[in-house]
């Protein structure tokens, strides 16, 4: 039916049709993401407010619902200030490099059965590779600002991100081992099989249960990778102000902000796909669908906001210790455990 509807457009556009159609799909993915980012900031402030027994934003629009729009407008009309001896080109490249990977990674996320922009075989590798590029935005921004605060903040945050990328990558290896594929759709399909799925309790067949330690490591590393509380040492009002974002204002600051929140949604989407069964329904009698993925992403996001309101910050050396001396050995050990488990007669993944 879809192709029948598209046929006249295809004829009209001729050879450029694939290009236009892909661009259309990209817009179809990006617009909801940017809207979710806007309302995630609102939701974060609301949740933090409730957890602090405050009200949160409630002035702009009904229940404060227009607050993100007001914030966006304010940032849009603010002047972008260039520090006097800043490297002007790189100063602009910085925020672009921060937001581009955050949005590019959505290309391989499968939203539902077949609902994916690029169903590539090396999807997980693509996520890891593009994710590691995000560090450049921070380093370039820190360096180009020509400010000591910005530079120190960039150093801190990029060192932290690189360290936790190692733990995240190693955690994913166990997932790849049990699903035997680098394709994200295949990984979700792999979680639909198993004893409990056949019994109608699919949520017990998802990867989070057999890979529980890895799931915990991935989730915590995800928070650290995002530079979110309790690992938000990139910002510190009393030491380095706003880290690499000190010198940015207006839309260039907004781009860092968008990148951070888009990455938050992305990390929860990745957690949902790798460990929580993607778009699969938790119980047998309800249908699978996009709705479930959205629900899982929202739960992940709530978790991020929740721990921000709950935990005190880590000290920097403790963050590094946790990443290198706890998570990396733990994931390496679990790779070994999963390997032996898969080869033993008790294997769940046949």
């Amino acid at each position: 039916m879809m192709s029948a509807l598209l046929a006249p457009i295809q004829e009209l556009l001729g050879p450029v049709f694939p290009l236009v159609w892909t661009l259309f799909k990209i817009v179809l993915i990006l617009v909801p993401i940017l809207l979710s980012v806007a309302y995630l900031t609102f939701w974060e402030r609301k949740i933090l407010g409730w957890m602090h027994v405050r009200i949160g934003p409630n002035r702009v629009g009904p229940w404060g619902l227009l607050q993100p729009m007001a914030d966006g407008l304010k940032l849009f009309f603010k002047e972008v200030i260039f520090p006097t001896v800043a490297d002007k080109k790189l100063f602009i490249v910085g925020p672009v490099m921060a937001i581009a990977p955050a949005l590019a990674m959505w290309a391989v996320i499968p939203f539902s059965e077949g609902l994916v922009l690029a169903d590539i075989d090396a999807g997980v590798l693509y996520l890891l590779a593009i994710g590691s590029v995000g560090v450049y935005g921070i380093i370039i921004a820190g360096w180009a600002s020509n400010s000591k605060y910005a530079f120190l903040g960039a150093m801190r945050s990029s060192a932290q991100m690189i360290s936790y990328e190692v733990a995240m990558g190693l955690a994913l290896i166990s997932v790849l081992m049990v699903s035997g594929s680098l394709n994200l759709t295949e990984i979700v399909h792999g979680q639909a099989k198993g004893y409990f799925a056949a019994q109608g309790a699919g949520f017990l067949s998802w990867n989070w249960l057999p890979l529980l330690p890895v799931f915990a490591v991935y989730l915590i590393s995800g928070v650290a990778e995002l530079n979110r509380a309790p690992f938000d040492v990139v910002e510190g009002e009393s030491e380095i102000v706003a880290g690499h974002m000190v010198e940015y204002s207006g839309m260039s600051f907004a781009m860092f902000f968008l990148a951070e929140y888009a990455n938050m949604i992305l990390v929860s989407a990745m957690v949902a796909i790798f460990f929580l069964g993607g778009w699969l329904s938790p119980v047998g009698f309800l249908p699978d669908g996009l709705f479930w993925l959205a629900a899982k992403i929202s739960a992940g996001l709530f978790f991020f906001l929740w721990i921000r309101a709950t935990f005190p910050r880590y000290r920097y050396d403790q963050i590094m210790r946790l990443g290198w001396k706890v998570f990396v050995p733990l994931t390496l050990l679990w790779i070994l455990v999963v390997g032996i488990w898969m080869m033993s007669p008790l294997s769940l993944w046949k």
Partner: peptide, 20 residues
């Protein structure tokens, strides 16, 4: 993808650190 992951994502970042 491995080239981007290893060289761009890890090696060059550390390189950039040192050069800066």
């Amino acid at each position: 993808i491995a080239l981007i992951m290893v060289y761009v994502g890890a090696v060059m970042v550390l390189f950039l650190f040192v050069v800066m």
